[in-house]
């Protein structure tokens, strides 16, 4: 059901758009557009750098899902926490990690946000309250609840936002965590970035139900299904969940419908879906929809948007230069950070 729900939307939901535009104002709307373009251009360049051999290993691009990270981030305060899985370049950048530091990390360089020790799947910056960057499907979902537990324990008034893919929902820890988060009133927002595929297995082939928000019913948790290609719908839907977490310490489970335009990782030709399916998704893409809204509402003209794109391209180009110029980590640091304290009397 959820798969088809937003399929034919070619514009932003007009009622939501009117409300959110009024709430956020022109400047913020343009900021969101700029962030979405930045994520798109960054990933396009990362993909090319991968093909040139500058980035190795696994690299999961966020192209197509930009409205989700950008809409979600707009709901958070600086004191809130974010934790994600391995398709997290977008979440890291909107959290405030610079494109330079993310690109350098992809290049395995010392100026990367994880000092070159993490790579594409393991981006961290605790000064931005961004806690990864995790590579075991669903494995960070209890971590998120633990962070929410700690912030509540310390009366921080902070919300933890946890991103994961639709493929995570069949892991045991997902269910274990939702049960405890609901029972213990943890201020956490659980976000399914439902891009229809668990790697190469489509939702209807990996899940007994496709209306994923039903998963929350068994845990008496608030839930919603949101059009993830509509940045304002994402903002408004997640805002409710964040408010619920902040004001009532109640967690929320969200099924946010999105679509990734590229394969699962760089080595995936995505033969499990048709060209038509991909083309259809791209035609109603999150950036085009916001662009149409901005132009129609005369929030900005085409020239302004083009200038933003040009700026962003420059920022991304600069990040590649920065990553190129940054050295690899010093081999003498190889064993650093295995332990905080290794006070063995030996070695």
């Amino acid at each position: 059901m959820s798969l088809e729900k937003f399929k034919n939307s070619t514009v932003l939901d007009p009622k939501i758009a009117k409300r959110v535009h009024k709430e956020l104002g022109d400047e913020k709307v343009i900021d969101m557009y700029r962030e979405m373009i930045l994520l798109r251009r960054f990933e396009e360049v990362a993909g090319r750098q991968y093909q040139m051999g500058k980035i190795k290993g696994f690299c999961h691009l966020y192209i197509g899902q930009e409205a989700l990270a950008v809409g979600a981030k707009a709901t958070l305060e600086d004191r809130d926490y974010t934790i994600s899985a391995y398709r997290e370049h977008g979440h890291a950048i909107v959290a405030g990690i610079t494109p330079n530091a993310v690109m350098a990390e992809l290049f395995g360089k010392v100026d990367g946000c994880s000092g070159g020790r993490g790579g594409s799947m393991h981006l961290f910056d605790t000064t931005k309250n961004f806690y990864g960057g995790w590579g075991i499907v669903g494995g960070h979902i209890p971590t998120a609840a633990g962070m929410a537990f700690a912030s509540k324990y310390n009366n921080e008034d902070a919300v933890t936002m946890c991103y994961f893919g639709d493929g995570s929902l069949h892991q045991g820890v997902f269910h274990e965590t939702l049960n405890m988060a609901a029972m213990w009133d943890l201020p956490c927002v659980f976000i399914t970035e439902n891009n229809h595929y668990a790697m190469g297995t489509s939702l209807d082939r990996h899940s007994a139900i496709t209306d994923l928000q039903k998963k929350a019913v068994g845990y008496d948790m608030d839930h919603d299904c949101i059009d993830g290609q509509d940045v304002f719908a994402v903002y408004e839907g997640i805002k409710k969940a964040v408010d619920r977490a902040r004001k009532k310490n109640r967690p929320t489970f969200l099924d946010i419908i999105t679509y990734r335009y590229r394969g699962h990782s760089m080595s995936d030709p995505a033969k499990y879906r048709t060209k038509d399916e991909l083309n259809d998704a791209q035609e109603v893409g999150p950036i085009i929809r916001l662009q149409n809204f901005i132009l129609k509402q005369k929030i900005a003209d085409k020239e302004t948007l083009d200038a933003i794109d040009k700026d962003v391209k420059k920022i991304v180009k600069e990040s590649v230069k920065f990553a190129e110029a940054s050295p690899f980590p010093d081999p003498s640091t190889l064993t650093d950070h295995t332990y905080v304290e290794w006070n063995s009397p030996i070695d």
Binding site: P142, A144, G146
Partner: peptide
């Protein structure tokens, strides 16, 4: 996992 997340903070 919840303990680990709490330890992170």
């Amino acid at each position: 996992g919840i303990g680990i997340g709490a330890a992170f903070l």
